[in-house]
Structure formats: C-alpha cells, structure tokens
Simulated assay, not measured.
Amino acid sequence: MVVRRSERKQGDPDLGVLAGQLLFAVQEQLFETLAHQGHSHLRPQHGAVLAYLDPEGSRATDIARHSGLHKQVVGKLLDELETLGYVERRPDPADRRAKLILPTALGLDQMTRSDAILAAVEQHHADAIGVEAYAAFKRLFTHVVRQQRAWRDQA
C-alpha cells in the first residue's frame, strides 16, 4: 500500500507543516479581526513588516534583518504601507543618508490593535492547555526557532 504524501503529513505533520499551519491560522484570525476593526486594506504580507516596526521608528535594513525578508521585499511592502497611510519615511537624525520608517497614527492604531488581538490568541491557548504548559511550549518553540536559525546560518 502506498501512502500519499498529503496523507502522511496529515497523520504525522512535520515541524514545517505544523509551524506553517500555526502561522496561517494566526494570520487569518489577526487580519480578519483587524479588518473588522477598520484595517481592511492590510494583508498578512504587511504584517511581516509591521511586526518589526518600532513605534519610535526603524530603518528598513533593520526590519529586513529581523524579519528575515529580503531588503527589496521590505522596500516594496513599505511602499504599499506608505501609500495606505500606515508609515512615513523621514531622514534618520542619527544618519542623514538613511531613512527612518515611522508609523503614522493609523499605523500606531494597527500596532496597538494587533498586540491586543495576539494577546487574546495567546490567552486563549493558555486557558486551553494551562498557563504553565503554554509558557513551556513558548519557551521550547522559541528554542527550536533559535536552534534552526543557528543551524541554517552555519551551513
């Protein structure tokens, strides 16, 4: 009997499948909720930039480094977010050659709402499996992510 790959992944999903399923489920809930709260123009791709944007401003190169996205991808997403009114570019006072990406009032509102939505998601899971079990899961998951990045960087 031949077991199809899709059936094998459903019965015993690997780390990549599980991480992807979690990412997509969280993104779906986050962006649907944000849309109902007045941020209907945002897409999950924008979240990859907004998640790493400091309220005091960030450089695009720092966002790219923290997010793991290519600088050109970050630049394209920042162009879209600027057009949508979520960020603005200003000269960086520490280096006039560089641009600082600052959230607008709309961007700050989105950041605050996203933080609250994600806190509710985390609280839901902590309630479902227990606060200590959820804290242990996050510690272990964080460790696995760091180990994977370190292993990748050694290659």
Rank of each mutant, 00 (worst) to 15 (best):
V26P: 00
L22A: 12
Y86C: 02
A98L: 10
A25F: 08
G47S: 00
Y86T: 00
V145W: 06
G38V: 02
V145S: 09
L100S: 02
D62N: 09
F141C: 06
I117K: 04
K76I: 10
I129S: 06
R43P: 01
T83E: 09
L53S: 08
E7R: 08
R59Y: 09
M111I: 13
D95S: 12
L140F: 08
P93R: 00
E7P: 00
Q10P: 00
S6Q: 10
H125C: 13
D62T: 15
V73P: 15
L53W: 03
G16N: 04
Q21R: 15
F31N: 01
V3S: 06
V145A: 11
L34D: 05
P93M: 01
E7W: 07
E88R: 10
H143G: 08
L42H: 03
R139T: 11
L100T: 03
A119K: 14
G85M: 04
S6P: 02
Y134H: 07
T83A: 11
Q147R: 14
H39K: 03
Q21M: 13
V73Y: 13
R113F: 03
M111Y: 05
V74S: 13
K99I: 04
A48S: 14
D14T: 00
Q123P: 11
K99M: 13
I129V: 12
P91E: 04
D12M: 10
I101K: 10
L22R: 14
R89F: 10
R59F: 08
S58H: 01
G38I: 11
K9W: 03
I129Q: 05
D92N: 01
Q110Y: 14
Y52H: 11
Q37Y: 13
G38Q: 09
D14S: 05
L78Y: 05
P91W: 02
P103N: 07
E56L: 01
A98I: 11
A128M: 13
P93T: 00
V145R: 09
E32K: 12
V3M: 04
V26D: 04
I63A: 07
E122C: 08
V121R: 14
V3Y: 10
R149S: 03
H70N: 15
E28D: 14
T104P: 12
G38L: 04
